[in-house]
Design a protein around this nucleic acid. Sequence first.
DNA 1: TTGTAAGCGTTATCAA
DNA 2: TTGATAACGCTTACAA
Lengths: 319, 319
Amino acid sequence: MAGIKDVAKLAGVSVATVSRVLNNHPYVKQEKVEAVKKAIAETGYIQNINAINLKKGKTNLVGVVLPFLDHPYFSQLVQGIFKAASTHRYKLVLYQTGYHEGQEMEALEMLKLKQIDSLVICSRQVSLEVIEGYREYGNIVLFENGGNTPLSYIFVDHYACFTNALTYLYDKGHREIGFCINRTDGTNSKQREQAYRDFLETKGLFYQEEYIIKDCIYLEDGERVLKELSHLTRRPTALIATSDQVAAGIIIASPQYGIAIPHDLAIIGFDNHAIAKALNITTVGVPLHSIGQLLFKQTLLEETSHKEVAVELIQRQTV
Amino acid sequence: MAGIKDVAKLAGVSVATVSRVLNNHPYVKQEKVEAVKKAIAETGYIQNINAINLKKGKTNLVGVVLPFLDHPYFSQLVQGIFKAASTHRYKLVLYQTGYHEGQEMEALEMLKLKQIDSLVICSRQVSLEVIEGYREYGNIVLFENGGNTPLSYIFVDHYACFTNALTYLYDKGHREIGFCINRTDGTNSKQREQAYRDFLETKGLFYQEEYIIKDCIYLEDGERVLKELSHLTRRPTALIATSDQVAAGIIIASPQYGIAIPHDLAIIGFDNHAIAKALNITTVGVPLHSIGQLLFKQTLLEETSHKEVAVELIQRQTV
DNA sequence: TTGTAAGCGTTATCAA
DNA sequence: TTGATAACGCTTACAA
């Protein structure tokens, strides 16, 4: 395979000149440019990007850490990250963790090894302290409220969102409010739960363990929610779902359980996925696509920053 | 930043020995191994993967070309590719094309430049001939019926699937059958359309342009389908949807249009997404997750191969 | 405007 | 079992 030397030889110039032509440097005589271009064409010369990466110390690759892709929440986020990355000629390397620390650590290690220039962490298991330890190897930006971590992050105030949704439900007369959640140990989940507890206390309502349905992520989890609820002697009159997927699952399964929505059960979803519009689901709209873009852009910036993204409650027909 | 030389110096050995320890080579005296490990720890030495890539001529990165991610069809596929890649310690680099040739060419160029070792093309715009030209730079595997291309591919026989679905509908008494499609120029789309035409001819039915609804991809396209259909004086009694997303969109919107499913309109979806199960949609089940895994595995193989993946019609309640 | 040569950080060959 | 050293393929001072 032809290398830069072969090109140089054929064109009758030095490798430096070839490199200059390749990189559009000024100060190369037009006729040499031609000669080099001709030689490149003739030899079928191909640059080796690894050599360039080695020399330059960067790869134009940014890593994206997330648990899985087959959920609109993450695929929209990635879509946004991709869009921004694309305009800056960056490529994305995916690190799907399935919530396993090992995979997350691999991403961090790759940052250290310079396989990637920076890292967007959409969801994490590893502690912030550990992640902070990798800060020196490249920019890391989180999609969560990282408090006073020195890492950059973009976040949605889940505490406020949740309180908002609860208040909305309360104002509509609901006093028995439950909610669905995914993992209980995630940062966002904790905030939602805290908001729930605080709200209950403020309003003088009782905390009912059974009103919290766990491990809800996908559409298909919606039916399970109704099943669990059906075993209860006293049921919530309203439910805040983990996401619109779960909300949709609940709504779709509701007729089988003889539950009319919103009459027997009011539902608020999260994210404003396409299905929320189709099924007229009242939801907390999270601009995931824009957030993805912000996440990537922060990756390029030297100064760390902590940005909150505003969300809005979209009123439709399920409350 | 500490390099391999610093480690060597500190450990009192040569760089070669450090490299041996790093790569678990045999024939290194245990005490030197210890010394090197100690020195690595002390210096905080970090390998530079670009140097390794350069030296070895490979990156353990495989590219994935697809138009977009925010659709279960592609996210499931990627999920499968990722799973297989993961077990072989490969990482995925995403090339989202939005159906633009430029992005596709970029992926091919990256293969050439050795940024990635091989390429999985889930959907393409660029001609097979052009792609074939990049075969010498790394393995390329397609997810489509590539005929007698020398490239490897895994495919679903969309012609047969479609004929199958049409026959099923016909046997249930339908004579006015329409279908939804995405881009009309895709390989799969063409096969579906051909199957449709051939079927009509075989059965002596008329081809009706208006029975073909274009640009249907997402859930939200379902409603448009009904709108377009509502303008027709004579309507199809059955519809094969591009995917379950579109099928679901149609089903969800059907009450607004006063259409009972399957009574007024029978629907067959594609892919067997989660929503197909939830909404009891009769569908052609495509094992996207497994296909993803196969696609990746083929990437590792030297011999090209052409494999068909079997699919099955899953009978539920929409026909 | 051009060329020489010194890196970039590894691995692998060869000789010891 | 070890060490020197030559690649790997490129960019970029520095010198001319």
